[in-house]
Nucleic acid binder design. Structure first.
Length: 875
RNA sequence: GGGUGUGUAGCUCAGUUGGUUAGAGCGCUUGCUCGACAUGCAAGAGGUCUCAGGUUCAAAUCCUGAUACACCCACCA
């Protein structure tokens, strides 16, 4: 066996190891056999560099993929990036503005600005890709995708056309959310609701108007065309259907019709609602409802897309900003004695998540996806498709059900679906898939290319989630019927943060079930956010950002990967701090050092066979190993990555390094030592691929690289005599614990009598224990009062210490043992009481009764042992 | 307003369908170079499991209520 170097230095070896993996070709499933297993990497936005959240995702995904690969699957982890339409354009515009440009869109024009954004995106893309490599992600680079590349654009256009032809995409004039700052629409999901102080004004349109209404947006009242009341409200019933003409200063006097709407609450506010169809989604819904009931009301737009008042608002208000208009209108109300009340309230407003301004509701012609319409040839709408995929399974086949971990997200998902409105997919930014629709006069053509030169393309682009929704199959060659698509779709597993549940997961389900009639993935694992030690989000503004690359260069990738998955549980946030990385780094060092011991202490690589004779310690460690293999496998299968790493760590440290390696120094069994270590390397590989592969390469002469070595299985049959070693362990520990009770005469040897239970195996090992516990020479200076020079004495041949430096306090030790005895006695009493209790005997399951009896026996033996020691002390 | 999650050692969290005397890592105290490891080893201190009821032979675990924090959703004018 080759020797390992003194220290493990990740920064010197990681890049070479990654290169070796990549060149081996096994990142590519084409070079692997077995059942397909595919994971699509959530494509990071090309808006910047990867942060710790990505580091966590990369870790989780790569653990899963490496685990599956070692289990003999034909694994595909497909990497990619997302052009992130609005987000990227907003980001680049912000940079340009910071560099002194006033209005990048006007100053550069579409072509030049797109060039700027493209440069930025390409740059960001290559950074992101190199970061993924640094993380050790074992993805197939030959299939690298980008939501905005040629193949993906074809997929986008194809799906758009299909939906359009199915009548699911329509162009409509409706009230949408508009970001004045970004000059673009945003979907309902892209709004971030924020609380802010506002004033609630209660007023009448005019002196003789019979109904008082309230509003936080007085300026929009210039566009009111109705007042809605509850149909059962006695106060207002008689006015329903009447039209009042009021002049509030708008261009034309307002024709206010009193309408009935059961959505209006009688007891809330004045019980009446001023209806502004053009500037409120609810009011617009009433407008549509009235229209469908042949009782139409007007729609007057008083705010334009620049956030200024329109001509319809009247000459007093035209061209004022909404704030100015609000002030002016309130003054008007006051002057005419129409204002009844002015209160301070907290209001919830929707702001654009990318541009940050409060979204304005405006009526506009936009493209929508109809989620409620029945899909031709099916009896379901898109909404229903999205629902059944997670409830009864796609096509009502439970085999096609998407499982979400943790499952509480399923009900969150359903309630979101219930509130889902038509999805506005057109955006007025330039960075994105331009809508594949062409116009010539009144004619419309849908397709990637124009029928002829005279046609002009719709200038708008698609919501970025349209293309992201196709990710599971656009990456596999769709619309071509490729073997990849056939082999890897539906994908096996998907992981994402809970913030993407609606944005992305829902849309993937929609797109995949609609387009391919397949679910996009079988299982989804939802993880939380990465937060700092104090629980804050990592963000530039709070200045707590940590670059994963810095962490890697200081501690190594494996340390980062370990810290990213330790302490996580599905759906819950993770707190990240450097102590965690440190302990990860320390652990990789530990693993390395065990390897160093093995190369020092053993001659040849001997493998474990049926004929290898096993001591009780050997059997014990092998049994423990098998348990560990079983539990780690179970945990990964259930996505308990953190727990898997914990039990592995505990086995490696507490059982293998602290006990077995020490015992190996006395009872050499190289075959077992090497077997356990190699198995450990395999088990650890998905978590910490670099250090394990490095050790594998440097120490052993294996044909296969560790990455594709078979995952350990439970193949060795062992005689179950583990109890014997556990008993020995317990005894040794106990002897260690009582070490301090002996005063040591100068130059003497101490014999510690081992008290055995009547366990056969323990008796067999008594001699071993005796040699192990014989204390070596102690040098003291003075025979009468033992001043101990050497601070410790060593159990012969064993690295177990007897500490003698600050002993001598026999009183204290007696007290300790006495306490221990009384505590144990209490326990015995309580168990006995329980065992005696009739109800317990009647109702407790059999195995519980047995366990309790065993416990009682153990406790009694303990008391016996302790009393014996106490007696020794007293003598 | 509706919903979800969380409250366990100083800190970060485990705690498997109720069943040993409630665990780990970090931190803290004490001691220590023994043939890999001070990025280490050994020992130790530290917990009315948020609170109050209830179910049970048995509750950190199940039920009810309270309370604190976090998050998500929503058209209360």
């Amino acid at each position: 066996m080759k020797e390992l170097s003194k220290q493990y230095e990740p920064s010197k070896t990681e890049d070479d190891i990654y290169k070796m993996w990549e060149e081996s070709g096994f990142f590519n499933p084409d070079n692997l056999e077995g059942e397909p297993y595919s994971v699509m990497m959530p494509p990071p936005n090309v808006t910047g560099v990867l942060h710790l959240g990505h580091a966590m995702e990369q870790s989780i995904m790569d653990i899963m993929i490496r685990y599956q690969r070692m289990n003999g699957k034909k694994t595909l982890l497909l990497p990619g990036t997302d052009h992130a339409a609005v987000a990227t354009q907003a980001k680049v515009e912000k940079i340009l503005i910071a560099d002194g440009m006033k209005n990048p869109r006007e100053e550069l024009g579409r072509g030049k600005l797109l060039e700027e954004i493209r440069d930025y995106a390409e740059n960001s893309k290559s950074t992101i890709i190199s970061q993924m490599r640094k993380m050790g992600a074992s993805c197939d680079w030959s299939r690298l995708s980008y939501t905005f590349d040629k193949e993906r654009s074809i997929a986008v256009n194809t799906v758009f056309e299909k939906m359009y032809n199915d009548g699911l995409i329509y162009r409509g004039h409706r009230v949408i959310n508009w970001s004045v700052k970004g000059q673009s629409t945003c979907s309902d999901d892209e709004l971030e609701h924020m609380e802010r102080p506002a004033k609630l004004y209660t007023f009448k349109y005019s002196k003789d108007f019979p109904i008082t209404i309230a509003t936080t947006r007085p300026e929009t009242k210039l566009g009111d065309t109705a007042v809605a009341v509850n149909p059962n409200d006695k106060r207002y019933k008689r006015y329903i259907g009447q039209i009042f003409t009021v002049d509030v200063g708008a261009k034309n006097p307002l024709q206010i019709k009193v309408i009935a709407d059961s959505g209006v609450e009688k007891d809330f506010g004045t019980g009446a609602l001023g209806v502004t169809p053009a500037h409120s989604p609810i009011d617009f819904a009433m407008y549509e409802k009235q229209k469908s009931q042949n009782n139409p009301i007007e729609l007057i737009q008083v705010i334009d897309k620049h956030g200024k008042m329109t001509e319809a608002a009247g000459s007093d208000y035209e061209n004022l900003t909404v704030e100015e208009a609000r002030e002016k209108f309130v003054i008007y109300l006051k002057e005419n004695d129409l204002l009844e009340k002015e209160e301070d309230i907290i209001q919830n407003v929707g702001t654009s998540d990318r541009f940050g301004d409060v979204a304005e509701a405006l009526p506009m012609t936009q493209w929508f996806i109809d989620v409620n319409k029945k899909i031709p040839g099916k009896d379901e709408s898109l909404k229903e498709l999205m629902k059944t995929a997670v409830s009864t399974g796609h096509g009502n086949d439970i085999k096609n059900k998407i499982n979400i971990t943790p499952d509480r997200f399923e009900s969150i998902y359903f309630s979101w679906i219930d509130n889902l409105h038509d999805w506005c997919i057109s955006r007025q930014v330039w960075w994105g898939h331009q809508i594949p629709v062409w116009y010539l006069n009144d004619k419309i053509h849908v397709g990637s290319t124009a029928p002829s030169n005279e046609w002009t393309q719709d200038p708008d682009t698609l919501d970025t989630w349209f293309s992201s929704g196709l990710w599971t199959f656009s990456t596999l060659g769709y619309p071509e019927k490729t073997t990849d698509l056939e082999t890897f779709h539906p994908t096996s597993w998907m992981q994402m943060g809970h913030e993407l549940l609606f944005f992305w997961m829902a849309r993937m389900i929609l797109m995949s079930t609609y387009t391919l009639d397949e679910i996009p993935f079988k299982d989804v694992y939802i993880h939380g956010l990465v937060r700092d030690e104090k629980g804050n989000k990592f963000s530039k503004s709070s200045g707590n950002t940590l670059d994963p690359l810095d962490v890697i260069s200081e501690y190594g990738t494996d340390a980062l990967r370990l810290s990213c998955i330790s302490g996580i549980s599905p759906g819950n946030d993770l707190k990240f701090y450097t102590k965690k990385v440190e302990s990860g780094r320390n652990f990789t060092t530990k693993l390395w050092n065990i390897g160093r011991y093995i190369t020092n202490a053993t001659e040849n690589e001997i493998s474990l066979t049926k004929d290898t004779s096993l001591s009780s310690a050997d059997t014990w460690i092998l049994t423990k190993l098998q348990e560990t293999v079983k539990n780690v496998t179970k945990d990964i299968d259930k996505y308990n990555f953190s727990h898997a790493s914990e039990i592995l760590r505990s086995f490696t440290r507490d059982d293998f390094a602290d006990w077995y390696v020490e015992i190996h120094k006395v009872e050499k069994n190289d075959a077992v030592l090497i077997h356990v270590y190699k198995t450990l390397l395999k088990l650890w590989h998905p978590f910490i691929p670099f250090v394990t592969e490095t050790i594998w390469q440097e120490m052993f002469n294996e044909e296969k690289i560790l990455m594709i070595v078979k995952w350990p299985t439970l193949e060795i049959k062992l005689e179950q005599n583990k109890t014997s070693f556990d008993a020995i362990k317990e005894l040794i520990t106990h002897i260690r614990n009582i070490r301090a009770t002996y005063t040591v005469p100068a130059n003497s040897e101490i014999d510690i009598t081992v008290i055995t239970t009547d366990d056969q195996n323990v008796i067999e090992h008594t001699d071993l224990i005796k040699t192990l516990t014989k204390v070596k020479t102690i040098t003291t200076q003075d025979e009468d009062s033992p001043q101990i020079e050497s601070a410790s004495a060593v159990f012969e041949n064993y690295k177990l210490y007897v500490h003698l430096a600050n002993i001598i306090d026999i009183k204290k030790e007696k007290q300790r043992i006495t306490d221990d005895i009384s505590k144990t006695q209490q326990y015995i009493d309580s168990i006995t009481k329980r065992l005696d209790s009739e109800q317990f005997v009647m109702r407790a399951p059999k195995h519980i009764v047995e366990t309790e009896k065993e416990n009682l026996q153990i406790a009694q033996i303990k008391v016996l042992k302790l009393s014996e020691h106490l007696k020794n002390l007293t003598n």
